[in-house]
Design a protein around this nucleic acid. Sequence first.
DNA 1: CACGAAAATGTAATGGATTACATTGCTGAA
DNA 2: TTCAGCAATGTAATCCATTACATTTTCGTG
Lengths: 336, 336
Amino acid sequence: MATIADVARLAEVSVATVSRVINDSSAVRSETALRVQAVIKQLNYTPNLAARNLRRNESRVVMTLAPNFTNPYYSQILSGICDTSRRLGYITLVYNTYETLTMKEKALTRLIEETRVDGTIILACSYDDVWLNKYKGKYPIVQCSEYVQDSLLPHISVDNVKASHEMVSYLVSLGHRRIGFVGSENMFHSTRQRLAGYRKALEEAGLPFRDIYVAKGSVDYSFQSGKAAAAELLSLEKRPSAVFCVSDILAQGVIAQAQESGLSVPGDLSVTGFDDGDYTTMFHPHLTTVGIPCYEMGQKAMVMLQQCMQKKEDVEPGVFLPHRFVVRESCMEYKR
Amino acid sequence: MATIADVARLAEVSVATVSRVINDSSAVRSETALRVQAVIKQLNYTPNLAARNLRRNESRVVMTLAPNFTNPYYSQILSGICDTSRRLGYITLVYNTYETLTMKEKALTRLIEETRVDGTIILACSYDDVWLNKYKGKYPIVQCSEYVQDSLLPHISVDNVKASHEMVSYLVSLGHRRIGFVGSENMFHSTRQRLAGYRKALEEAGLPFRDIYVAKGSVDYSFQSGKAAAAELLSLEKRPSAVFCVSDILAQGVIAQAQESGLSVPGDLSVTGFDDGDYTTMFHPHLTTVGIPCYEMGQKAMVMLQQCMQKKEDVEPGVFLPHRFVVRESCMEYKR
DNA sequence: CACGAAAATGTAATGGATTACATTGCTGAA
DNA sequence: TTCAGCAATGTAATCCATTACATTTTCGTG
């Protein structure tokens, strides 16, 4: 494997000149530069990254903390991050946090220091991980999809309040008066905001907000949790005629449970999801849902991280991408 | 950030001794070692990876080439790889090959040389990428899930012939005589082997192998491809009473198409899948399928790669993990 | 033609860990 | 007491690219 010294020798210049050609190429006579480039090609030379990183004091590695990246929601985001990081010349280390929703401060610190990564994208911090704010101005961190309360760090997401408000208002417009909420007993900002949007839509419609219609007893966004939540809501004396779920998979669970209870969706129960993953149109009823631009969020998060790493002053602190409102088959007008 | 020199100074030893403590720790008096370790902890010292890698002439980075890791099949494998690589002290660079099934020799070479990764795991080479064999003994490569024909390199997979033979024999045992095959017009070894297993099972049962029952017009493993294949098979004059699919998603597509054509599954058509992803039990009928230990394949692939990188002589060339035969609801006895 | 400024290029220090080789210190046998 | 032999530790070269600073070359102008 050729080194910069080999190139210098063969091109009859100094290593400094070769380095200049590789990098800025300022102050090198074009004739010389051409000669050096020819030798580089001839020897098939590639700079040794370890040496470069050592000298430049950077790693060109960024870390992404994702819980369970088997979940299509996260893998879409990851896809956007990985593609973009490669394009920008970074290696992405994907670290599985295993649904550990509440990040541990020490674990993160150790991880960052051990691997000496140049920056970190966090996909699933809990809204009360406010200690993350201490990294402001000290270490590049971007929060993607979730972010902590009163975040001082850059974050990218969608307007969850608006999206859920829109969806619940849609259910209201179909005549539904008893609308259930299926969420998750976790510390995600998004869930709380979706609950807020739900609440706001009810208020605007002059409908009462009732705790019994809110099912959030589950800890994850799983199919089973959706089923359990549905079982709870459907056993109520006055069961909801529509259910707003904070994820597609939860919605699928709700539908499955409803069907097992002999109810038809959307005939007897309208159900809405959130995310718009691939499988939403794989089974009937096709899910009415909120489309989240996961891949694009990942892309943008990586671009923002790069800006942070380059200490650009103009990093937008909070970016919100537009969601899509996707009406399909899982909702129907309320028939009394 | 503390360096080895800082530690040496504070512990009143030489850098060599500190290095020895960090690494082998042989030939260091336990008393000295303890003192050094105390200083390391005190300064919160972590070795600079760039410097270490430069000196050791390794990167401690491994690359994984995956097509579309949004696909749960691949993301499960990736999960196993990433977790294991971290445990073994490697960083995993995930490179999205975007369904580029036929790998390009030059692209891979460039990728390896550019990033100087210590080893590479390939998830989806095509069976005729035999040029990969030239890396034997020269560069650590492990093929996971797919592998090239007559591979000379380590690979890990399941016994696809056996698995599909088992599944098709099961359909035969249910009385089915016309069994369709839904595959994919790609260059994957696994697909070809599953076709071989299908064929073998038919032969054993004394049933004819007929081209018209083989639908593999699609290029990917998508839901839409499954639907298209089903449309083709179901329009036959003597349509199959059972369909064996080489992936769960294809099977879901077949079921969807059958239902749209007014057929009930499994009442009018038995359908089987392959992989056993999470969603197989999310909708009725729950899919009868072959369970593939994706996560475990990923784990094992990484372990094998490490052995290659350490130039262990005893790397098993081919490893086959056991599959699971999972009977659920999507098949039924043939009623004439 | 000579001079000075600017452009081009070279020299050598630097980053931090590893390790071959050198040195010191100690134990025990002669 | 002396010295071989080994354990413990130190010194300095090394990995390779970057870059501050030094030096040389080039070129326009007086």
